[in-house]
Amino acid sequence: MQPARNTHELGGETASPEWPGWPGEECLREALRSGCETAYAALLERFQAPVFHLVQRLIDDPNDAGDVTQDVFFKVFRNVGSFRGQSSLKTWVYRIAVNEAYNRRRWFGRHRRAEVGLQPEEDGRDYLDSIGDPARSPYDLTLNEEWKSAIGKALAGLNPVFRSAVVLRDLEELSYEEIAGVLDVSLGTVKSRILRGRESLRKALVEQMEPARGYGFNPQPAGD
């Protein structure tokens, strides 16, 4: 949240720093309920990228992030009329996103696991591999690849309950209170989930990056 001095006058009313062009969140909610196109555009402008990234970090297959994001905003638009502002719009949207990602993970676990692809993956390479980086040596690239793979595996193996708490805190940088609102749990539960989530990730990475494989998990990270 930006400081209050950043607010500026807009049409005789004070504009909200969170919602540029709108006097406040309440006003935006009313506009959304009445079907104002500008309000819908403002909501998308503010949340579409964060929700897409959050969903991508919470589900196992990043290719599904687009579909889940569409589901999230469909639910947001459909239910904005019944949203009475018990929490902030951000908390409400993030809650829907976390729930949708959780549902998608469950669906993935039930259905996608049994699917067999006709064409094999192209050596597990993604679009980032095609981007050249002359500043890095082959060793750095290998190490980086190992790190990416290890983090991805550790995150995928993390309990979804802990994963959502850690992602919201460490990547989305929500406050503990906001996370409690998003996950609809108490503040103590949020602290506990973040603590256990971080600890689980650390243990998973320690197990994967043992010194016997040549990549020590030491506390002096190389600059990215």
Partner: peptide, 10 residues
């Protein structure tokens, strides 16, 4: 330090 590294890697 390991926890820091995890956070950094994430």
């Amino acid at each position: 330090g390991q926890l820091d590294l995890v956070r950094h890697a994430l």
